[in-house]
Computed example of a mutant assay.
Amino acid sequence: MSVRQALLALLEQGPMYGYQLRAEFERRTGQTWPLNVGQVYTTLTRLERDGLVEGTGADAEGHVVYRATPAGREEVATWFTTPVARTQPPRDELAIKLALAVTVPGVDVGTVIQQQRSATMAALQDYTRLKRRGPDAGESTDRADLAWGLVLDSLVFGAEAEIRWLDHCEARLRRAALDRPAATAAGEVAAVRDENGEVVR
């Protein structure tokens, strides 16, 4: 997730200070990815260093207020018109866990899959409840409601895809278990042939 571009996009709409940016980001994304205010201010410092935002002074309460520069607005426009790259996928902890589980002796991969499926199903049920309680993104005129609805849809689709993938992993493990006895038997036959120096049919 690009906090940098998200903060720039918010600042393009008007000057804000760090706590306002954090609150606005979390409001629009339904607090799905909470931001640490320290991360916000660190990002603002880097954006200012890069000439993408500038401080406009402090407000009456002493908060340093920032606004996007023309270069910052240009970067936001580029971000919105450039597809998210899939050339280097983000690290997926679950995929890494399963890849290692099938190669580490003594790990019950089936149990790993079942536990994850239960957790993902519970998350999917939570997302579905949130969708039922919240305003319908297709009917709401509030753009923040629409934004949260889109994020929630993404979470639902992601959980559904993860459950399908876990089902696929389980099926592959079953096939591999069925193929293993045949491969073991073939290895034993080869060993007999090698030991006696004869070709076994």
Rank of each mutant, 00 (worst) to 15 (best):
M1E: 13
M1D: 13
S2Y: 02
Q5H: 12
Q5W: 03
A6T: 12
A6W: 02
L7R: 04
L8A: 00
A9I: 01
L10V: 05
E12W: 01
E12P: 01
Q13D: 10
G14Q: 08
P15Q: 10
P15F: 00
G18F: 04
G18H: 03
R22V: 09
A23N: 10
A23R: 08
T29Q: 12
W33G: 00
L35Q: 05
N36V: 05
N36Q: 06
V37G: 00
G38Y: 13
G38V: 07
V40W: 00
T42K: 15
T42N: 10
T43M: 01
L44N: 08
T45Y: 06
R46C: 00
R46M: 02
L47Q: 00
G51S: 03
G51Y: 02
L52I: 01
V53L: 07
E54G: 01
G57P: 14
A60T: 03
A60K: 08
A60G: 07
E61K: 14
G62T: 03
H63P: 00
Y66H: 06
R73Y: 04
E74N: 10
E74F: 10
E74V: 06
E75L: 09
E75G: 01
V76C: 08
V76F: 06
T78C: 07
W79L: 05
F80E: 14
T81K: 04
P83L: 10
P83D: 07
P83F: 11
V84E: 11
V84P: 01
A85E: 15
R86D: 12
P89M: 05
P90C: 00
R91K: 13
D92W: 14
E93N: 15
I96C: 10
K97F: 12
K97V: 14
K97H: 13
L98I: 15
A99H: 07
V102P: 00
T103G: 01
P105E: 05
G106P: 04
G106M: 07
G106N: 08
V107F: 06
V107N: 03
D108T: 06
G110W: 03
T111I: 07
T111C: 12
I113P: 00
Q114P: 02
Q115Y: 07
Q115G: 11
Q116T: 09
R117A: 15
M121A: 15
M121D: 12
A122H: 10
L124I: 03
L124T: 05
L124M: 04
Y127M: 11
Y127E: 09
T128M: 09
T128E: 05
R129L: 11
R129V: 12
R129W: 05
L130P: 01
K131S: 06
G134A: 09
P135E: 04
P135D: 05
G138Q: 11
T141E: 08
T141V: 11
D142G: 06
D145Y: 07
L146D: 10
A147E: 09
A147H: 06
D153T: 11
E160P: 13
A161T: 13
A161R: 12
E162D: 09
E162L: 11
I163E: 03
L166Q: 06
D167A: 10
D167R: 14
H168Q: 15
H168I: 08
R172Q: 14
L173A: 02
R180L: 09
R180S: 06
P181C: 07
P181V: 12
A185L: 15
A185F: 12
E188K: 07
E188C: 05
R193P: 00
D194I: 02
D194N: 10
D194Q: 13
D194W: 04
N196Q: 13
G197K: 09
E198K: 10
V199I: 14
V199T: 15
R201T: 05
